[in-house]
Structures are given as C-alpha cells and as structure tokens.
C-alpha cells in the first residue's frame, strides 16, 4: 500500500512537471509572438541592454528589437537612438543614461511609458490620437501628445523638461505634487518641494536641444611630433 502511494505521488509529480513545462513552452511561444515595442536604430560606442532587472547587462546591437520591460544603458560619450515600432516617435538616449521601455496594448493602440532612471533623453514624438505616451522619472511623470524636446534627470533625481514644439503635461511625484503644462519654447525645472519653475528656453537650453540632435560621431586625427591626437565629436544626422 505504501508502494502504491509512492507510485501515485511520482505520477502526480511527473504530471505536474509536464504541465509546468507545457505552460512554460506555451508562454515562451506566446512571448515569441509578442511584437517588440521598440528597436535600436543606431548605437554609438558603449550601449548595453538587459531583459529585466534580474538579468545581466549585455552589449546592444544596431537593429536589436526591444520588448516591454527591457532596459537600455549608455556609457561615457555614448548614444543610442531608439525607434518605436508603431511609428510614434524617436528617443535619443545620451551618455550615462538608463531607461526602461514599457508598453501596453489596448485594442490597436500601444500605450507607452518610458522610465528614465537617470541621464538625458531627447525625444521626437508624433501627434498621438488615442495612444498614451509618458515619460516617468524618479520624481515626475510627463504626458506627451506630439512634441519635441528633452528630459533630464539630475544628480538629485530632480527632473528638467524642455519643450521646443507642442505641449507636455508634467506632474510631480514628490512634495506637493503639482501639475503643469510646458509649451513649445519653454522648459520646467523641478524644485525639491515638488514645484516646477517654468521659463522661456534660454540660449543654453537651445544649445542643449541642438546638441540632442547630433548623433553622427566624427573623428579627427591630428599628427603631432609627440604622437597622434584623436578628437571625437558629434555632428548632425544626415
């Protein structure tokens, strides 16, 4: 009788294992059918990515698709151009930045949320009709409708949002949790108490916006008596 019980337990265990494996395969198969929400259009120097928080960082490659939940990290003087697969826009991830791309399908619409843990991200987003497009930083959330600008997460995790065209709705996640609109030609700097200071784009900000668009890495080698000096710089995209 004891032997029968042991046999039954083994059978049940085997069956459960089979079910779990099947479910895993099914899930994996469904995962393979999932359309990536973005892809990496261009890489300059050191850009890595990982599938989730528990995975290791691996070198990213040009043309690599990104699914919801994946992260992209750029190193020193590095750049990644990320394109959304629904044609909704482009992100320019500048050096020393980490971002996490999330997407949720709703009918034929893909609601996107780009989480910027740190760094500087320029964006060109087409006019959204039904879809949501958000940027989330550790301290703020910005909703985009059809906009060009950049978002920067500073050392103290405070956010700066600049808008060259369109309009951005920004809500603070800290302090008094204020909500504002940043229109084309203005930028907002988050204060520690949760307020935003809105000002017209200064020359420095306009330069930053201009620099955001430079993604072609050029190199000049200068021969000197002491050796060869290499100077690298970004120029405009062709």
């Amino acid at each position: 009788m004891l032997q029968n019980k042991k046999n039954n337990i083994k059978k049940i265990f085997a069956l459960l294992l089979l079910i779990v494996i099947s479910i895993s395969f099914i899930a994996a198969a469904e995962g393979n059918d999932e359309t990536p929400i973005a892809l990496v259009k261009k890489i300059v120097k050191n850009v890595t990515h990982r599938v989730d928080q528990d995975s290791d960082w691996e070198l990213a490659k040009t043309g690599m698709p990104l699914n919801s939940g994946e992260q992209v990290k750029t190193g020193f003087r590095s750049l990644a151009l990320v394109l959304f697969t629904d044609g909704s826009g482009l992100l320019r991830v500048r050096e020393n930045s980490i971002l996490n791309i999330l997407g949720k399908q709703s009918d034929k619409n893909l609601n996107k949320n780009t989480v910027i843990e740190k760094g500087f991200v320029g964006f060109e987003i087409n006019k959204q009709e039904a879809e949501e497009f958000k940027f989330t930083t550790p301290t703020a959330v910005a909703a985009i409708r059809g906009t060009e600008g950049f978002i920067e997460v500073g050392d103290k995790k405070l956010s700066t949002i600049a808008c060259s065209e369109g309009k951005i709705e920004v809500e603070s996640l800290i302090g008094i949790k204020s909500k504002i609109f940043v229109e084309g030609g203005y930028f907002a700097v988050q204060q520690p108490n949760g307020y935003f200071k809105i000002r017209q784009l200064t020359g420095e900000m306009l330069d930053k916006l201009k620099q955001t668009k430079k993604s072609s890495l050029e190199k000049i080698k200068i021969e000197t008596k002491e050796g060869i000096i290499e100077v690298e710089y970004y120029s405009d995209e062709e």
Binding site: L39, K41, T62, G63, L83, T85, G87, K108
Partner: peptide, 22 residues
Amino acid sequence: LSPSEDETVSLNDLFISVSLVK
C-alpha cells in the same frame, strides 16, 4: 522603420525593419 527615405547608411549599420503593428 529603417532605413529612412533617401538615407545614406554604411553597410555595417544597415538593417531593414518594417512594422505592421497597425
């Protein structure tokens, strides 16, 4: 999605991507 219209791209960076999500 890639390449863009009339883009000039190096063979090393070229990939073709088409999205049919819509």
